[in-house]
């Protein structure tokens, strides 16, 4: 377990508080918006929001009087963007900066293995985003179940479990993709551009899953998706180790 790599990454993260706070604030902003929208929708004060959402989500049309809970469910799924977005931003920058400052070379001459080094980075950026998403999910669930009597109709145990289990896998997929990008491009600018471009499809994927899942109620589909994401995460992590080409990064990056 590369605890020392994780610790070092976290110490560096804490040293750049402004970037850290900005990124950590994002999920809480989504949470606040989710809470406000749900409460206002319940009180019938945000009918226009509900109508807008009905356009993108047919389930809401069926929800009728339970529209506000359906909105809550939509936001609950939207939290899945957090584990995709946060680690991707940090991990890409982290590898780029290590090359720019020469630390990557200093580390790679030590006996640390590529797997240990990358696993440390993946965990360093995944763990906080996973914890953060779970905290946000938990707060939101607490609100839903204490506010709405019929919450369990829309938030079944299997659904909640699936959404919670998806978080680490989405996070690992995100970091692994950022490592793959960092390994294959040959300069810092391209790495940053690719990193940014990669964020969009991942968010797109997460959002499409949100909409897709919000229309489904079959537990088998939820668990099936969790399994697929787990397999994809594992494969991508293995690929990222294989593609993390020390030589390419050391000798070709400008």
């Amino acid at each position: 377990m590369p605890g020392f790599v994780i610790l070092r990454e976290w110490k560096e993260l804490f040293a750049t508080r402004s970037v850290l706070i900005t990124n950590l604030a994002a999920p809480f902003v989504i949470l606040v918006v989710a809470l406000i929208t749900t409460v206002f929708a319940q009180n019938g004060k945000m009918e226009f929001v509900l109508n807008l959402m009905k356009l993108t989500n047919p389930l809401l049309n069926m929800a009728g009087a339970d529209g506000h809970i359906a909105i809550a469910r939509f936001y609950f799924l939207l939290f899945l963007i957090v584990p995709a977005m946060i680690p991707l931003t940090f991990a890409t920058t982290s590898i780029i900066m290590e090359k720019m400052t020469g630390t990557l070379e200093s580390v790679l001459v030590t006996p640390i293995s590529t797997k240990e080094f990358l696993f440390g980075k993946v965990l360093a950026y995944s763990l906080p985003s996973i914890a953060l998403t779970w905290v946000v999910q938990l707060i939101f669930l607490g609100f839903i179940f204490t506010t709405f009597d019929n919450a369990s109709e829309y938030f079944s145990i299997v659904f909640i479990l699936a959404m919670i289990l998806l978080v680490p896998f989405i996070s690992i997929i995100s970091v692994s993709l950022s490592v793959i990008v960092s390994s294959k491009v040959d300069n810092v600018a391209a790495a940053q551009q690719f990193g940014a471009i990669l964020v969009l499809p991942i968010i797109g994927l997460a959002v499409s899953q949100v909409i897709f899942l919000s229309m489904m109620s079959n537990p088998v589909i939820y668990l099936g998706l969790v399994t697929i994401f787990a397999v994809v995460a594992l494969i991508l992590f293995q690929i990222s180790i294989k593609l993390f080409d020390r030589e390419h990064i050391i000798s070709k990056w400008k």
Binding site: E12, A15, T16, G102, T103, E105, S106
Partner: peptide
């Protein structure tokens, strides 16, 4: 040891 010191500036 290389010409550019590979140390972590923030640490």
């Amino acid at each position: 040891v290389t010409e550019s010191p590979g140390v972590y500036d923030k640490l």
